[in-house]
Write a protein that binds this DNA or RNA. Structure first.
Length: 479
DNA sequence: TGAAATGTTGGGGCG
DNA sequence: ACGCCCCAACATTTC
């Protein structure tokens, strides 16, 4: 536990992916020292995997919001840039800080740098304490009878829930501190440039989002007030903007904790199991990442290692731009580009399309999502791509191939979603909006659509691509 | 948290 | 009335 302070030297709260004041265990521990606080964020410039462009945009706004909440309770926010270890050394030297607190991260690079920093600080008699601020349980905590980690979601979540339930009752989420004691001496600050210089893309994607702790809790509350009741079905309809919680970017930045979500959902009158099980998938991803540090680069199932992916930059580009000729896929890819987020139903379809119809390596898709998703979560992004590819733990089997227009006909029956993001098809009748290439000439003409000009022909033929994927899959397994 | 192919059943048209 | 075929509609299996 926290040592008794022996001087009035400051303590450092190192914010990372926990950009909130409430239910922040590291922050509360720092506050409990009664020392003046240095509330620090370091934009780390030596990460093995730099933040994606969309995530930087989110971070820009989220940090502003954090700084102002800190100010409201009397603290000073300190923003720095550089390699974490060097920045910490500098801040400690300037301030004489004697203690530091942070919440853990779980990707290999983060674990390694944190443990090096911790060892180096402890060598110099700086008190270091770390906490779990972003997960319901630690990824090493939920074990099978045999003592390993769970590799299948359902039994994992059952076992995890049994730990989480009682723990939440015993330790409900922490209140935000009412008052912070600021460290008064002026420290060197950095200005960050996180927004892209020449595009107005960043302004567009952030529209309709409110990064920050307040935005996160507002969104959770409004979701729990109504939409959660219908979640089980509504979550499948991408045109339904309130069908899902859309908490992912907030959660990834740590503006809200899964503990707060669990608690609030359980307090509600409605059955929130389905919704919470999605939080469970996030937890499960972290279990997989923790035990498989190379989850973003390496097939979890190594029998995928000899899969012969195609190199096809033109198709990859068409996919990223939403120009595949399959309206449902294109709507999803354009939603991602325009809003920094994509509905989950559509994520599965576009990923399946890239991997199976185009036979392009899932890592290329993962990389694009990493760069364009406001949330870009290191665990969930990798685990989910591997899920679709079939190479992951408890994954969809490779032969389960989504029909890129059938999914549209089922989940975007009236074409609202397609019309919103693929406006060049907006005058197509419902019957053909998912399959313009099947439409009679007169119908196309009337809708002002010329295939190959105003909207592309499908870049691959569905049935052919499906069969090609199945046989390529068999080949890779030597069948 | 699929989709397509294949199999089965039963009603209706029709010689 | 009967057998035969066609083909929905549904179930099962295969990928």
């Amino acid at each position: 536990m926290t040592q008794k302070k022996t001087s009035n030297a400051p303590a450092i709260m190192w914010f990372r992916r926990d950009l909130r004041l409430a239910d922040n265990p590291a922050l509360m521990a720092a506050v409990d020292t009664d020392r003046p606080l240095i509330l620090l964020y370091i934009y780390e410039t030596d990460l093995e995997r730099p933040l994606g462009a969309a995530k930087k945009v989110w971070l820009h706004h989220s940090l502003k919001s954090l700084a102002s909440s800190i100010k409201e309770v009397g603290g000073n926010f300190l923003l720095r840039e550089g390699p974490a270890e060097a920045v910490l050394d500098d801040v400690i030297e300037q301030s004489g800080a004697e203690a530091i607190f942070w919440n853990r991260r779980y990707e290999a690079d983060g674990i390694e740098r944190d443990s090096n920093i911790k060892a180096s600080l402890q060598d110099r008699d700086i008190e270091v304490e770390t906490f779990n601020g972003s997960l319901l349980t630690e990824p090493w905590e939920v074990e099978t009878q045999a003592g390993g980690y769970y590799k299948v979601f359902t039994p994992y979540w059952r076992a995890a829930s049994q730990i989480i339930g009682p723990r939440m009752s015993a330790n409900p989420p922490l209140e935000a501190p009412k008052k912070l004691i600021p460290f008064k001496k002026n420290l060197k600050k950095d200005e960050l440039e996180l927004l892209p210089k020449s595009l107005d893309w960043d302004e567009q994607i952030i529209t309709n989002w409110s990064p920050g702790e307040k935005g996160a809790s507002d969104r959770l509350n409004s979701f729990l007030k109504g939409p959660v009741k219908e979640y089980a079905d509504a979550r499948n309809i991408p045109s339904n903007e309130t069908g899902t919680s859309r908490l992912s970017p907030h959660l990834a930045a740590g503006e809200i904790s899964p503990r707060q979500i669990w608690q609030a959902a359980r307090e509600g009158k409605h059955d929130a199991d389905k919704f919470l099980s999605e939080i469970g998938w996030r937890e499960f991803s972290y279990v997989l990442l923790y035990h498989n540090p190379e989850l973003a680069e390496k097939n979890y199932k190594s029998d995928f290692d000899n899969f012969d992916w195609r190199t096809d930059t033109a198709s990859l580009k068409a996919w990223t731009k939403g120009q595949t000729g399959y309206p449902f896929v294109d709507a999803g890819m354009r939603q991602l580009w325009q809003t920094g987020w994509m509905h989950n139903r559509v994520r599965m379809v576009v990923a399946s399309f890239l991997i199976k119809h185009l036979l392009i390596d899932w890592r290329d898709g993962e990389g694009w999502f990493w760069d364009t998703l406001l949330e870009a979560d290191p665990a969930a992004n990798s685990a989910s791509w591997q899920w679709v590819a079939g190479s992951g733990a408890d994954a969809a089997p490779y032969f389960r191939i989504f029909n890129p227009f059938g999914q549209g006909e089922k989940f975007d029956e009236d074409g609202d979603y397609v019309r919103k993001f693929v406006p060049e098809l907006k005058d197509m009748p419902d019957k053909y909006i998912q399959t313009p290439w099947k439409a009679p000439k007169e119908v196309l003409k009337k809708a002002g659509v010329t295939l190959g000009e105003t909207y592309p022909e499908p870049i691959v033929e569905h049935k052919e691509a499906r069969e090609r994927a199945l046989s390529r899959y068999k080949e890779s397994r030597g069948e």
